[in-house]
Design a protein around this nucleic acid. Structure first.
Lengths: 151, 151
DNA sequence: TCTTGAGCTAAAGTTAGGTTTAGGAATTAC
DNA sequence: GTAATTCCTAAACCTAACTTTAGCTCAAGA
């Protein structure tokens, strides 16, 4: 029998498939808030399995951890989230995903145009649209993406 | 008048919108190979503007720098690339993009299903398909993505 | 010529999202 | 009761894709 109620971090790791280190990291990022048993070890609710599962899914959809934290903030504090709570949150995910798909589809259309016209690589090319650039993916030279260097 | 033919790195930076430091970094990664003038400064061909532009576009499409280097390797060494050369390369990009879009569309379908069934966050949920997870985005806990920790 | 603006290299710093390590303390299993 | 797990924290390390800094050299203009 456990020394107190709740899941240990190792148990939660086994249930979610996450590494223990990742769970502790998510806590540091404010995504999950366990309590401590008398010995100082973390204890989790069973609902936290869902919470972490959601984190993993949201990551696949391209949300950053701060974004996920914000989304999770809409879950109730005072009670265990219900399926309806999760459903509402999933719909926000869906909106995010739709936007990513749109961006990629627009990129593809532009690329098709460019293949036809031979303009690929010209700075005036539609592919250079900075909005698309900023949203399509996380990487690329920083200052092109709106982070002007000083001086 | 310049001390030798070709574009200086600053001129290339202005033409492409890239930072000088980024251009030097791309060289270190094998994406571009300038020659040196008698004073040891880098000199570029005008065709290198296109080359770097292509790098930026390919990044938007989610290719890593090593992947871009590989794609660029199919350009001719002995002559300036023609529009036909670029067109061929663009088609490889298009295939990559199609795959990304497919993955996201499948994720969206699964999410729709999950919103309906309320299963979101259950490990058996279709959203946990590891193939999709590995391909949808670069981030997420490493060892879930096939990089098992030792011991 | 002399000064300032580019360029050079090497090395360190940055961000996101974690993992690994070191050195202890708490639990569990026998 | 003791050995083997598990857990704790803090700090260092990791990758990708760059940027910044330091100290120096080159090039261009008045």
């Amino acid at each position: 029998m456990p020394v107190s109620e709740g899941l240990s971090i190792g148990a939660l790791a086994r249930r979610t498939g996450l590494a223990v280190s990742a769970i502790r990291y998510y806590e540091a990022q404010g995504l999950i808030s366990p309590w401590r048993n008398p010995g100082g070890q973390r204890r989790y609710q069973r609902a936290d399995i869902r919470r972490l599962s959601f984190v993993m899914i949201a990551q696949q959809f391209g949300l950053t951890l701060p974004e996920i934290r914000e989304v999770l903030a809409s879950l109730p504090d005072n009670r265990t989230p219900t399926p309806a709570d999760w459903k509402q949150i999933s719909q926000r995910l869906r909106a995010h995903l739709d936007q990513r798909i749109d961006t990629l589809l627009r990129l593809r259309d532009n690329l098709d145009g460019c293949i036809g016209c031979g303009c690929l690589s010209l700075p005036k090319c539609a592919l250079y649209n900075p909005d698309d650039r900023a949203k399509a993916h996380g990487s690329g030279p920083r200052y092109l993406m709106g982070d002007a260097p000083e001086g």
